[in-house]
């Protein structure tokens, strides 16, 4: 089988805030009622990660689960584990009303790193999010300039962001422009 290729060949833009495309990652979409016990138990047994609270992400080792909507979760795993987890999760869900799909090639993922305050200002330039109150471990689906994205902060000084693969170039370009200039607002 041919090797997976990311949308922008892991392009990097150095600057006050560094923008880098990362990957290839494994991304599995789960549709189903995330508040149901059956779905929660299946996810826990198949991935070893708990179903996250509303608008949060949960992690265990190199696996994470993002809360995308009341009936959608994004499961992030190493690419090599995708097939095995899709099979295990589908079996664990059994007759529960749910759907599991390998969406690894559908999205591009970026990592922004830099001084925490500067990083938040870069996001404020592009998205209608109150970044002053944005917490580590929170996930936000929103608008990045003209495209839908999901973003979260794995730790202070870093933002992870996913968008559809077809608009990866647009996302990289607007992030690079926003990240290239100095901070405007002081503490």
């Amino acid at each position: 089988m041919s090797d997976p290729v990311t949308a922008l060949s892991n392009a990097v833009a150095e600057g006050p805030v560094r923008v880098a495309e990362t990957g290839p990652h494994g991304m599995i979409t789960l549709r189903g009622d995330l508040s149901s016990d059956a779905v929660a138990a299946a996810v826990q047994s198949a991935t070893g990660v708990a179903v996250p609270e509303v608008r949060r992400l949960s992690s265990a080792g190199d696996r994470s689960i993002l809360w995308m909507s009341p009936d959608e979760a994004m499961i992030l795993v190493p690419r090599a584990e995708v097939a095995q987890i899709v099979t295990a999760l589908t079996q664990a869900l059994g007759t529960a009303h749910a759907l599991v799909a390998d969406m690894s090639d559908a999205r591009a993922r970026f990592r922004l790193t830099g001084e925490d305050a500067h990083l938040r200002e870069v996001m404020v330039r592009l998205a209608p999010v109150d970044m002053d109150r944005f917490e580590t471990g929170e996930i936000r689906r929103t608008r990045l300039a003209q495209i839908p994205v999901a973003l979260w902060m794995p730790e202070p000084g870093a933002i992870e962001l996913i968008c559809f693969r077809s608009v990866a170039k647009y996302a990289f370009d607007v992030l690079t422009v926003a990240a290239s200039s100095a901070r405007v607002f002081a503490e």
């Binding site: 509303v54 909507s69 929103t142």
Partner: peptide, 12 residues
């Protein structure tokens, strides 16, 4: 009311 996000109208 579903995800609890408060945002301005361009996100809706």
């Amino acid at each position: 009311p579903y995800c609890g996000v408060t945002s301005e109208e361009t996100e809706f």
